Structures are given as structure tokens and as C-alpha cells.
Computed example of a mutant assay.
Amino acid sequence: MTIFLYKLFLGFITGSLIGTFSYITNLLTKSGAFAVLFIAIIVCGFGPWLTWALLILFFTSSGCIHFAKKMLKVNNIDTITEKGHTRDAWQVIANSLPAITSLIIFYYTKNQLFLIGYVSAIAGATADTWGSEIGTLSRTAPRSIISFKSIEQGISGGVSVLGSIASFFGSLLISVSFWLLYELYHTSNLSVSMLLLVPLICGVSNAFIDSLLGATLQVKYSCPVCGQVTEKRQHHLNQTQRISGISWLTNDWVNFFSGCSTVMLSWSIVFYL
């Protein structure tokens, strides 16, 4: 119990540092910073130290990409996306809840299947974030994952070559890091495919599922003033009109469902391997 409380305290310190820095640099809202604090406490309290490292790696790499884009003065797409780049609590929780659920189950069962489920979810979140952030740097317009027609940058469901490559390397970063850290400090008979390939495949799948749900089921609106397709309920101070998707299925729900799909996919693969 002493070690567990000690880990919770470490999680509080780590989460406070990440949340405060992210809030100051406009990566997170105030509610988003508190959500990160909560998640850090859970991960540090219930997971082995390498799970903390992967979480920090996800936030650090995503933050570096964001700052690089600001320095390059990339065009802002916040008028299209529902909430913009500054994430609130719902966005943080939607991206993290499937992962921490799998981690908590791992803590009580000690079944490696659930640890790999956590890693796969982090790989998926990294792949999705890298794909979205770096994909906006593409000189060619993204294409709908369903119709393959060109769509406006920032609209959910669009994919580009650059964004797809970024998603792959984001998932690869988490997968390779997990493999190296696990092999360094654990003696087990888990294969390389279990440690490396499963999180990699599931992470890339997360970005695909996210785009697929974004293109088919996520709610989208049209601005009555400029006619622009947007994910916002209001545009140019006017109420937008729903043109497609399920009314309650916002990008937060898409992230949550794609995360759940990624975790369950990893469970299924590991179970049958």
C-alpha cells in the first residue's frame, strides 16, 4: 500500500507538471489540465513505470509538433474543427479512457493482454494526433476516405499521404519504445510480434477507424453565411445547419469509439496469437 500511495503521489507531481505546462502554452484548457492530472495519477498508480514513459512520450511528441507548426505559422483550421487545437477535459478523457481502462484491468489481472491493450491505445492516440497535426502541412488537399474526393483541410474523414505516413511513424514510436523498455527490464517469453507488431498495427488501425467514423457517422454542419462545411454548431455568429452524420456523434465520441475499437482489436489479436 505504501508503494501504491507513493506512485499516486508521483502521478500527481507528473500530471501537475504536464498539465500546468500544457495550460500555459495553450495546449490544454483549464479543464483539460485537470483531466491530464487525473489520468497521470491513474497511470502512475496502476501501471508499471514504462506506462508512464509512454504517456509522457505521447504528450511530449504531440506538443513538439504543435510548437513546430506555430513556428512555421501554419494556417489555422479552428474555424472548421469543433474545438480547435486547445483540448478540453472531454477531448482528453475521450482519447485516454479506453487506454486507462485496459491498464486498470491489467493491474488486477496481471494478464499481459491488457497491458498491450493500453500500449495499443496510446499508439493509436499518437498515430491519430500525428496524422491530424502533420497532415495539415500537406501541399495537396486531403481526400475523403470514403469517396476519395478532395475535401477541405481539417474536416474529419479526410486522409493524405503525408498524414498517413505521420500516423504510421507515430504508432511506430510508441511501439518501438514499448518493445525496447519491456525487453530491457522484463524477463518474459513474449514474442516481438506481441510487443512490437500488435501495438503498431492497432495504432495505425486507430487512425483508419477514426477517419472512417469521421467520414460516415460524425456530425457535420454547413454555415448559412459562407456555405463552408464545418464541425461547429455556430459559424459567423449564426446557427449552422446539420448536413450529415448523427446529431450527438461529435469528434470526441469518434475518438472514444476508435480508441475502444483499437483496444478490443489488440485484445483479440493477442488472445488468438
Rank of each mutant, 00 (worst) to 15 (best):
Q112A: 13
A89C: 02
G124A: 05
S132T: 15
E133S: 02
T126Y: 03
N111A: 14
S120M: 09
T136V: 14
I104G: 03
G131C: 07
D128E: 10
L137H: 10
T129Y: 07
A123R: 05
S132C: 08
S138L: 10
S120R: 03
T101E: 04
I116G: 04
S96Y: 11
L103A: 01
T126G: 09
L97Y: 11
T136G: 07
T126S: 14
F106V: 09
A89P: 00
S96F: 11
N95G: 15
D128W: 08
Q112T: 14
R139H: 13
Q112G: 04
K110W: 03
S144Y: 03
P142N: 07
A121Q: 07
G124K: 03
Y118W: 15
V92A: 02
T109Y: 05
S138F: 13
I104K: 09
S132K: 08
P98Q: 03
L103C: 01
Y118E: 09
I105R: 09
A141Q: 12
L103I: 15
P98D: 13
G135C: 05
S96E: 08
A127W: 03
I105G: 09
G135V: 02
T129H: 03
K110G: 04
A89D: 11
E133H: 02
R139V: 05
Y118C: 13
F114A: 08
Q91R: 11
W90M: 11
Y108T: 12
G124R: 09
A125Q: 11
Q112K: 09
T136I: 06
P142Q: 08
R139Y: 04
Y118V: 05
T136P: 01
I100F: 08
T129L: 06
T126R: 04
L115H: 06
L103H: 02
T101R: 05
R143S: 01
A121H: 05
R139S: 11
A127R: 02
V92S: 10
K110S: 13
K110Y: 12
D128Q: 07
G117V: 04
N111V: 05
I122V: 06
F114W: 15
W130P: 04
T140D: 13
V92Q: 00
T140V: 13
I104T: 07
Y108N: 14
L113P: 00
R143D: 02
W90Q: 10
I122D: 06
Y107G: 06
T140S: 08
Y107D: 03
Q91M: 12
T126L: 09
S132M: 04
T136N: 06
V119Y: 01
I105M: 07
Q91W: 13
A99D: 00
S96L: 14
S96T: 12
G117T: 10
L97V: 01
G124N: 06
W130A: 03
I122F: 00
P98H: 07
T126Q: 11
N111H: 14
A89W: 14
T129F: 03
D128G: 09
T140H: 14
P142D: 02
L113K: 00
Y108K: 13
W90E: 12
G124L: 10
I104D: 09
Q112L: 07
Q91P: 05
Y107K: 14
W130M: 10
V119E: 05
T126I: 00
I134E: 01
L113Y: 07
N111E: 14
R143K: 14
S144M: 11
Y107H: 15
L113Q: 05
I116M: 01
